[in-house]
Write a protein that binds this DNA or RNA. Sequence first.
DNA 1: GACATATATCAACTGATGTTGAATTATCAA
DNA 2: TTGATAATTCAACATCAGTTGATATATGTC
Lengths: 117, 117
Amino acid sequence: MQTNQASKIFEALSSDVRLDIFRLLVRYAPGGLVQGDIARELGIPSTNLSFHLKAIVHSGLVDVEREGRFMRYKANIPLMLEIVAYLTEECCSGNPEACQRFRDASPARHILPRRLD
Amino acid sequence: MQTNQASKIFEALSSDVRLDIFRLLVRYAPGGLVQGDIARELGIPSTNLSFHLKAIVHSGLVDVEREGRFMRYKANIPLMLEIVAYLTEECCSGNPEACQRFRDASPARHILPRRLD
DNA sequence: GACATATATCAACTGATGTTGAATTATCAA
DNA sequence: TTGATAATTCAACATCAGTTGATATATGTC
């Protein structure tokens, strides 16, 4: 992963609308959702939804495919995992005890990386 | 974590410059770095660095404290962990096998969440 | 082919972001 | 208190992002 790709991915997650969309698709992975489902679920007008979906797809975080007259969107889970790894890379370099303490103290403990590194 | 706070955090990571800064500070956690160190390490002019540091601090992802005439910046690792949890929450809801497969297939396997939830 | 539905594109506007150089403030050291 | 260094603020500019309504395209159904 390169800084430039990573920052584009974070940019895709930097609007409320797109973050809601992405998290919805994460929940519905691996099957994905059709655009109309997303619109209904989140109450976003179709014009605006098209705009934001295009942005997320462009970042690579979401994939699309046509399905008749519907467009099906699926979260790119492998890329999501990669970017988590990229962000946490070499955390507390040379001080694994400090790093372990951070994880132990987190309320999200149970879903955190085994190591951050 | 609320969508709005989360999207602001991702916005803080959505520029190359800020992402480089943050990852540098993650590496140097928990001690942090002084602004001049960051400037030297990344080659960013001081005016611009001030601008971006202010933005990251405002997001909560980084903390500052004065240290004589220096400003020391430290990555907020607990918040970083929280946002990773937020992003991956309820991944593949109702299909834990699919989720496990994603993790097993990832080249970043060793640093990924135990479960994505 | 004609119609209905799903989605995309376009134009327009508003407001925010990133960068730079010059000037300013704050702190330490002599 | 003077000078040196660290960091911030300011003004100016260029660029880009988000939203909306109107219009266009694509696909399935009759």
